[in-house]
Write a protein that binds this DNA or RNA. Structure first.
Lengths: 151, 151
DNA sequence: GGCTGAGGTCGATAGCGTCCACGGACTGTG
DNA sequence: CACAGTCCGTGGACGCTATCGACCTCAGCC
């Protein structure tokens, strides 16, 4: 990971569809060289994926909620995790310090669907309670990360 | 937004670097047709951007925190928002229902940097208090959204 | 010095992006 | 019904890109 790799990562964070030729021009290398570097960034796991960022409203997902989840004493954390993973509405999942072991971000179409999701979560074995906050609006999300001079 | 547009969005959510030719094969249209459809999805705002998803640790951002922010009574919400926006560590910002007007997700390199960020937030005019939770691990994030039959 | 490996350039070729002219299915109208 | 207009697609063409293989260069090491 040198300075050129960092620039490549930064460029691709900004626009994942840049051509190798364009990347090459920006960093001052040839296209094959860039191709190889990006390939290594991908296979070493620095670049995990390339995703189109979609406006949730336009695909019928207008409601965003954040859910803190408290586990039963004696719950199997892996089982809970697996159950949560199977709910496609849950688009992010963090294991947290604190009473609420998990913090979930969910995206659904309507408040009614959110209600159903919460009920399903509360019924899940190992889940003691949940606490849900509803986002009224998303100001921004997943802003490209500032590239600290890395590892 | 018909079924083909939905497939295109779904395919690009999964891999933003697919070529138009490949997309065309997958949805059974010609490349120029796909090119035009994707162009319209972009300019109508359905597709906001294409981003490389980067492993935060590898660019020196190993600490994820979630911060609830309570505004002063009489604070100017727009000013608070502007101040928060200027902090590049804050990668997501939601305006929430509840006492904590904003929920922020931050990404920093070390706990020391997190401390500085929190101090800066608490010093910001209009901010009454903050409450921070630290993520011990990220199970997953920004999973491709399930494509409900959309608008 | 001479080997070796990493990482670059160059050149070639197949395939892709993108522009354009053209054509069929709907739709509203005389 | 015939007509024109619109929408949305196809196919062809052409320049640019992706990607492979051959070769070059430099650093480290025996």
């Amino acid at each position: 990971m040198d300075a050129i790799d960092l620039s490549l990562v930064e460029l691709l964070q900004g626009n994942a569809r840049l051509s190798y030729a364009e990347l090459a021009r920006q960093v001052g290398l040839s296209a094959p060289a860039v191709h190889e570097r990006v390939g290594k960034l991908e296979s070493s796991g620095v670049i995990r994926a390339y995703r189109a960022e979609v406006e949730p409203e336009s695909i019928g997902l207008g409601v965003t909620a954040v859910i803190g989840l408290v586990e039963d004493s004696g719950a199997d954390t892996d089982d809970v995790l697996e159950a949560v993973r199977r709910m496609p509405e849950i688009d992010s999942c963090y294991f947290m310090a604190g009473v609420e072991s998990f913090l979930l971000k969910a995206r659904v179409g309507t408040i009614a669907e959110l209600e159903q999701l919460i009920v399903r979560l509360n019924r899940t074995p190992g889940v003691a309670s949940t606490r849900t906050g509803v986002a009224l609006s998303t100001k921004w999300e997943n802003r490209p990360q500032p590239l600290g001079p890395a590892s």
